[in-house]
Design a protein around this nucleic acid. Structure first.
Lengths: 143, 143
DNA sequence: CCGCACATGCAACCCGGTTGCAAACTGACA
DNA sequence: TGTCAGTTTGCAACCGGGTTGCATGTGCGG
């Protein structure tokens, strides 16, 4: 699901009926290099209603076109899924970093989530690995 | 900070002035074997006001007597810190499991958070490793 | 006993997320 | 092409976790 395909094709590949709203949201998410909150999307897409964004994100989530996770900021963050296939495996997911100073959330694309062995019986759906602390910029400023 | 010491002593060891509210909250957290939300604490401690619980939890957090983290439930969860020393190292922290079916959060005490190497410059404060999926009970029921 | 700093309760508030409902749109079919 | 059913969207209202301001209570040093 990387470049070469249009947003519309990406939606269809995930079995999502491509509407204006869905194209716009996915478009925006694919442009951004960092995860965003619903509120941030709201300001990026002023024409679109909050509830529409909310429902659109849910559709995209259900069809695994995007991921969501919680950094420690209080609001859920969303990012486009850049897997090759339409199903994204846990092993391919990267970790995130939340800076407690500037409150930005970073994708650490290079570092994949380490998978642990759980006790018998647990069925893993998804994993969230988020590090909190100071980003390079802020820790330099503090020093 | 394990057994043998009273709740009051534990508070003092963390440099916290032991008041009735703080003792009650820490007491409750030490009894419980699973992480709880503020709301859950509210119902457990009916006498105490929501805002008092909120501020108490913050005091306990600042002095590292407890931990907080977000499973995917929307509300922050709190659990007592069972480290030996007054400072709890990241390496000692365990992972959590959130069941999307029964909405319970489990401590997987046996499994410690795997530590990854971050790119230069990031300063780690804390890490949240939470697995979402089905707990043993619910996945058996579904089968 | 007084005064001060800190702790608590109450009520109001903020805001992210969520829902009900009516209008707008789309696509299938006559 | 016109019509109807199902889907999508916007609007407004709501919900609940979290947070704050302020007045009252409590404990301690002087």
């Amino acid at each position: 699901m990387t470049d070469g395909t249009t947003i519309e094709q990406q939606l269809q590949a995930h079995g999502i009926h491509p509407t204006a709203a869905r194209i716009l949201v996915l478009q925006k998410l694919s442009e951004l290099t960092h995860p965003v909150s619903m509120t941030e999307l709201e300001t990026e897409l002023e024409t679109m209603d909050k509830s529409t964004i909310f429902r659109t994100l849910n559709v995209l989530l259900e069809h695994h076109a995007i991921h969501s996770f919680e950094d420690g900021s209080g609001s859920t963050k969303y990012e486009i899924c850049r897997c090759e296939s339409t199903v994204c495996r846990v092993e391919n997911r990267h970790i995130h970093f939340y800076c407690e100073e500037c409150r930005r959330t970073f994708c650490i694309e290079d570092v994949k989530i380490p998978i642990v062995a759980l006790p018998e019986g647990y069925h893993i759906e998804t994993i969230n690995y988020t590090v909190k602390g100071l980003c390079p910029e802020c820790s330099r400023r503090q020093a």
